[in-house]
Each structure stands twice: as structure tokens, then as C-alpha cells.
Design a protein around this nucleic acid. Sequence first.
DNA 1: TTGAAAGCGCTAACAG
DNA 2: CTGTTAGCGCTTTCAA
Lengths: 346, 346
Amino acid sequence: MPTLNEVARHAGVTPATVSNVLRNRGRVGASTRQRVLDAVDALGYRPHLAARALAEGRAPTLALMVSSIANPFYPEFALAVERAARTSGHFVIICNTNEDPLNGRAYLDQIAGTLSEGVLVTNANLDFADLHTTESRGTPVVLCMWERPNEPPGLPCVAVDFRLAGELAGAHLLELGHRRIGAIVGSKASGIHAARYEGFVDALRAAGVRKGPIKHAADTIHGGYTAARALLEANPKLTAIYATNDLPALGAMHAAADLGLNVPSDLSVIGITDIQLARDSRPALTTIAVPTVEVAELAVSLLRELIETAPRCEGGRANGPPMRTASSPRLVVRASTAAPRKARPE
Amino acid sequence: MPTLNEVARHAGVTPATVSNVLRNRGRVGASTRQRVLDAVDALGYRPHLAARALAEGRAPTLALMVSSIANPFYPEFALAVERAARTSGHFVIICNTNEDPLNGRAYLDQIAGTLSEGVLVTNANLDFADLHTTESRGTPVVLCMWERPNEPPGLPCVAVDFRLAGELAGAHLLELGHRRIGAIVGSKASGIHAARYEGFVDALRAAGVRKGPIKHAADTIHGGYTAARALLEANPKLTAIYATNDLPALGAMHAAADLGLNVPSDLSVIGITDIQLARDSRPALTTIAVPTVEVAELAVSLLRELIETAPRCEGGRANGPPMRTASSPRLVVRASTAAPRKARPE
DNA sequence: TTGAAAGCGCTAACAG
DNA sequence: CTGTTAGCGCTTTCAA
């Protein structure tokens, strides 16, 4: 691989000049510029990104922390993140924490500030303390998909009103006439989906409908399957299931099928997120769509701002860490919800 | 972020010594070592990976080229790649080509050899010429999932016997008694799935069964859906569908459902790969499992070898580019295949 | 308009 | 055992 120095020699100029023409920096004479350009493609020169970054005191990548890229939501998000990152010349490194805070910390320790200029965090089950540490060391961190716009975390974030998402889901089911609704709430006691459940409960309360049974489940199809079976077997009269995520909702549909229940005529199922699979399932899943791409773009642009300004205003953050709020979740009605069989019109 | 120099000053030694204790290189006195270590965590020092890489003449990442990380196969593969890469201290950068060779080339030009030490390529629709170029510039490239072990490409690769996969699929269907089998062949005219289809046809031929209708389709659930509908509507007597990939197979199951056909009693469906979704679909998909994780590991280890040896044996590749062959695909019988309704025993 | 020089943070000879 | 010296490939003052 030819270096900038070799290009310079080849063009009979100094490295500084080559650098200048390459980045359109200083004023360079037209003929010199041409000579340099010729040398560049005579040699097939490509700038060494790592070296450039080192000299500039920057880093050419963004780190994307996910619990496991295999969970189908993350790839979709990652794709959007990558697109956004490319526009600012960043590459993205995927960091699978595998739900283990230790892995997360190891990643942060290694790449934050050295290989990556900023860190994007999805529900990767990271230690907040670790995140603060990396932030205090000067590498900006932004939380994607913060679930409570009204309760900012101690870190920069992009918020999505997941309470509203839950509420919309509840309202939709209620409107169809459902009164006995089971809930599958994702992600263990970590309470990561608490807002989604609260919104749902709020909707019920507002309608004067009693809370139905609830079951916690892993955020997978299988987790939803197991939870739904348990729910349905213990509560045969349920006419609908609300899952705080699409994957468990899909699992609930499978459980229904295995129990001889038809979706939606015997059982309605609704999820949250609107992943690709929701569109591709049979019946297609009714869900509350979250603006994934928008979140990714907001997150990347926020991160970029932080990267720009971080060096300057070291100490004082005016009113707490910045937060961007993505547009509201919205209901997407597909084929997995319908009025309960014997719904009496209100 | 403290630098190695500061650590050195803090410990009252020279940078070289710090470097030595950090990498257990030269012999360092016990007390000095301790002093350095103390300084390291007094300052919270972490090595600057990019700088280190630059000094070592290496790069800390591997590039993974995929057509789109959103296709559910790739995340699974990416996860395995990342795990393997971590063991050699590499991070992985995901490069979505979005099926466009131009994007692929842009990625290669930018990061190969500067940010990434090696390139892993899945079916990303890249220009082979571009790949050769980057290889000739000294950055090793390995093709993952080469489909024809007997016809090595001009590049290092990990091969999987996809002809066999197709044959196994055909054989399974035949054994169940199917004689009228439609085929959904993925990925346009690029012929990327040709081997999979040939194997299938070989199985039929060996059994003296006539080829059924064939339809090409995009490698998505929707693509499979459309193709299957067309196939089924034009050929009502089909009792089975063979798809060269799981996603289209899943789509075929949906099409069957929409046409009032029960899978597997009215129609058997089989795919190739065994992605997670194959396990999670209802009915669960019978498929030919490809050893994804093994392929990822072989690919990374081959790439590592190439990275090690590349500098030395610049010119001469003994017997063409190296190829590793992953273990054979194998049949995984689930619930989407069964004997055709009126199968007469052979 | 171009060149010379210093330095980003680290490693790698070699010398002492 | 430890320090000295160069230098990875590039950028960026500052002079010329």
C-alpha cells in the first residue's frame, strides 16, 4: 500500500501538499494539484484511515452496543445506524454484550475513545456506572430507545414514548371490545419494559376494565410462546394478549395455534415495535410501530454533536444531558386483532 | 484520556518500559513492573488501540461484508464471526453493500488495509475484480459460504457443499413419496443458488422422477410467498415445494395457508440453511442445516492465517488460493414435511 | 503557493 | 533490566 509520502515523492512535492490537495485544505496551485492527483491514482493511493484519525485526534468508528445482534430487532436498527453513520464518515463496530455487563465493560474499556469516537447503546444490559465512566473519560455515549421521555436518565438519549405505545395497544384492544386481556411483559425483572406495561394498564384503568393476568417472558418467540401457553391454559377466557414486544407476540400466536385457537377470531394478539417479521408473519401482526429509523438517525446525530462539542465544554452541562424525543409510536392494524367472538357492542 | 507517556512519567520510567510491562514483552524488574501497574490504574490508563495498531503495522478490525444485515441469516453469522474475531483480538466492522457492488467497492477502498486487516465476504454481490484488487494490495480476503467445493473460486474461501444440500432436500421429499415437487430458486439470474438447485435435480434424476416447475424469487419471505402462489396456482397438483433458502420456504408456507392448503398434509415445504426462524415458525420448518458457526470460525481462522503469512510469501501461492471445507449440510426434519396425502407406498 | 518540522500514542530495535 | 532513538502514516502549525 502506497503511503502519502510516496505519493509526495512521486509528484515531486512535500507530504503536506499532498495532504492539502486531498482534503481541499490550504490553497494549492492548479498544476501542482493535478500532479498530485495524477500521482494518487498512478499509485492507487488510499489514505490510511487509522493514521489520519490518530493525527487528527479522532477515531473513525462508532460503537454499537447490542445485547445480541441475532435478535431481529437489532439488525434493522443497526442498518439504520450504519446508514446514518456513513454520512458522517464513520464506520460502525458491532459489540455484542450477550446480556453480560462484563462483556459490555470490556468493549467500552477497549474501544471507547481509541477505536470509536462515540458509543451507541441499545438495551444491552450495560452497567450505567460503566457508561458514566466512559463518558467522563471523554467519549460521548447515547442511549437509544430510552423508554420514558419524562424521566431522563443521567445520560444523553433518544427517547420513545413507550408508555404511550402500551396505552395505544390497550386502547386498540379495548375498542375492539376485549375485556379479558392477558399481558406478556418482556425482559425479566430489569423492568426494561415497565413503561410499556404501565401505559397498557393506564388504558385499561381509563376504561374501567380490570387488569388481566400478566406473565414475564424472555424477549424471544419461544419466551412468548411459553408465557402465552401458561396464560391461556390458566385463563381460558382470555380473548386477547398484549405483548410488550413483537417477538413474544409472535410466540403467542404460535401458542394459540397449538391450543387450537384461531387468531384473531378466538384470540387477538398485539405487540410493540413493528419489526419486519411482524409484517411477514401469518396472520400478520397488529402492533405499535416504533420509528426505528428515526431513532437511529437522531441517535447518530446527537452523538455527532456531542463529539463535536465535547472537547470544548468539558465541565458544564447546562440542563442535564440532552435528550431527543422521537415521534410517537402509532398503531398498525394488521390481521392478528379483531373483535372478540361474542363481543356485545358497547 | 491518559497516554502511555503520562503513565511513564507518573511511574518515573520511560514509555518503552511501560509498553514492555503492558505487553509482557522485555524483561522488567518486579518492582518497576509494580510501579508501572500502579500508575496504570491510578490514571485509569487504557491503551490507544488505533495508535498501537499503527505502530505495529496492523489493524484492529476485520470487515464483514454483507448484502444487508437485516436479512436474518447474516446477524446469526455475524454473531459467530464476532465471537471468533474476538479471540484474535479483532473487532468487526459491518459493511452493508445493499446489493450494490459500488457500495462494496467503496467500503473496500476505504477500510481494507487501513482500518481492517482482513475482509470476510458473504453473498454481498461484490465485484470479484474489486476483491482481487484489494487482495493484491495486500489485504487478505476470504469468501464465506462458497457453494461449490469442487470448483474453487480465485480467492481463499470456506466452502459448503450446497449441491449436496439440494440433493438431501430432494431425497427427503422423494423418500416421503412426493413426485410432483415445485422449486423456488433464490437470487435472480446471478445463479448464486445454482448448485442448490442442481443437487435437487440430481436427486430427482437419480430416482427417475421428472423435474417439476421452477420459479425464481428474491431471497425473502415475501419473494417466496409470491413465487409459491404462482407455482401452486399454475400447478395445483404439486405436493411439495423445495426452496433453496429458508426465508422463501417460510413464504411458501404462508402462501399455502392463504390458499387453504395445510402444511404438511396438503403440501410439504423444505428449505436450506436452518436459520433461527426455521425453528420458530409454525409449523416448524424442515430444512437442510448449514454449519453456520463452523463456517464463521473457519473463515476467521483462515483469514488470520492469511494475515500472518501474507507479508512473507508475497508472490507465490502454491496450489491456488486455500480453501477450507465445512462439514456437510444435514437434514433436519421438523413439521413442514410429511408424506403426500395419497402417497402409495413404493 | 509550498516546504519544514513537530507530533498524535504507541512499538521496536538497539544501546547502555 | 531500562533508556534512547526512530518511526508507523498522516495532519498541521508556521516559515519561507
